[in-house]
Design a protein around this nucleic acid. Structure first.
Lengths: 263, 263
DNA sequence: CGCCCTCTTGAGGGCCATCAATTCTGGTGG
DNA sequence: CCACCAGAATTGATGGCCCTCAAGAGGGCG
């Protein structure tokens, strides 16, 4: 049976928080602090380092020629970034909290260490896989959700990723504009959705950027119930597929490694 | 200066085509073929293998409870997949072309080999990074583009990833429904967009699923010109940031590796 | 032929982006 | 301390894009 999308989103983002040091790679690390809005690197610059965020928060975003912006990911302490392209950065990364601390590692050295120290390679691989999952999961929200659903998903994600408090209050490090660009909607619509949730007593705005979730179950219900409504007119998978997919592989022998890989 | 998004999308997806074997990991590989629509693995199943696609094409997708679908990525020969979650698969992967050939590697064995053979780890890391970039880049399209822009981006991407022919004709391995779920729009809208492009003599439908691009420049112009229109009312970055971001790091010494990483 | 699926085309309505105006907030200087 | 201002945030009104519903055309297969 298919598990609900919205649930699995939160399950994963609330998952293990990998912040252990990267072995001997730390010897080549350099740390710097950034002010609000300051760029760690920019679109078009050469890819020379890997970065990791230690404290604060940052946004990874793309710009169109005339300044329109799309935020691809919010980065929190522990997240690894900077590998968004092979040669030149496709995206820009900017700090959104004051005093955001970033550590960087020279790319070549990082690759060497990753090649010589399996635990480091292992951890980098896991961080990369986690990044893939985070982005893929969020793509589901961008595509099919309504404005209210987007904001609910966002609040739940932030509650799991940024909240250290026990009273279900989240201090959002980003502006409404950031939220809008993250969810690919207009600022006004973000504001309206928050107002609606507030009038329904689902959330309470302690301050402008501090949200207390009064009724978490209601937030989840907004997402779940909306997915219920989406009846697919789409023809489902062809055929029965009653056969165990795992069995298929066992019947075949291992191929010669070289002959298989042609363009 | 910011480079146009649409351009960088194609630059990367048309990039290097890594299909070399994964070292001694190939000794544990098993190959199987799949029919159209058949599942390689399904949402909710335990993550026991890494997979790689050798021939054909596949779709990686998520389902809501009632069958609504979102395609997260199309997979082509050389692509590595199966690492969409740590324990249970969040997504399903299904073949979309007949005779799609998939090779799988036991997960534990794959991790061991990756830990002991740096070249394999290196290649896996690159495939994972590439996957991140592909998904992030596509997120830009999902968020801000109109229906016509989405379809144009899609056609250009497919032309670069699936076309082996020199006459600018692409045989799409997927149905209109797949395209719709990939771009997060209705099937009817996909069809309408294609009709518009055909009437503008930008494309020509050799067959229903075979598109010849008559005027590639026009396709690119649809995307670029639309980004031109998007004037941002958003307040741009705070402050000047004239300082070289690289210089910031040099001023600070390397921290003690252990003290830095707290939750 | 008849069935099913895919694809296309048309008509109508709802959601959200856009434009516009007001209020709120934080920072600065008098 | 308070006035002042720029940016952030909210609220209202309107129009356009696209989703939805509906129907028909084209294609493969038993």
């Amino acid at each position: 049976m298919h598990t609900p999308i919205a649930v699995s989103i939160r399950k994963w983002t609330a998952g293990q928080f990998v912040t252990s040091p990267l072995g001997s790679l730390e010897e080549w690390s350099r740390v710097a602090s950034f002010a609000v809005g300051e760029a760690i690197y920019r679109n078009g610059e050469p890819v020379e380092y890997w970065y990791r965020i230690l404290a604060g928060a940052a946004r990874q975003c793309a710009f169109t020629q005339y300044g329109s912006r799309q935020i691809v990911d919010f980065l929190r302490p522990g997240d690894l970034f900077g590998y968004d392209a092979p040669n030149l950065h496709t995206f820009s990364v900017e700090a959104i909290a004051s005093g955001t601390r970033i550590v960087r590692y020279p790319r070549l050295k990082a690759e060497q260490v990753a090649d010589s120290e399996p635990p480091v390679a292992n951890q980098i691989r896991r961080l990369a896989f986690e990044s893939v999952h985070r982005v893929q999961t969020r793509m589901l929200i961008l595509g099919r959700a309504t404005a209210l659903e987007k904001v609910c998903s966002f609040l739940l994600e932030m509650a799991d990723r940024f909240s250290a408090r026990s009273d279900h209050a989240v201090t959002l490090p980003m502006s409404r504009y950031d939220i809008a660009d993250y969810l690919a909607m207009a600022v006004e619509t973000v504001s309206r959705a928050l107002t609606n949730l507030r009038r329904m007593d689902v959330i309470h705005l302690e301050e402008v950027r501090c949200v207390r979730i009064c009724n978490r179950h209601a937030l989840e219900r907004v997402i779940d119930s909306s997915t219920h409504e989406l009846k697919s007119r789409r023809p489902m998978a062809v055929g029965g597929y009653s056969s165990d997919p795992h069995r298929r592989f066992c019947a075949l022998a291992a191929p010669s490694a070289t002959a298989l890989y042609e363009a």
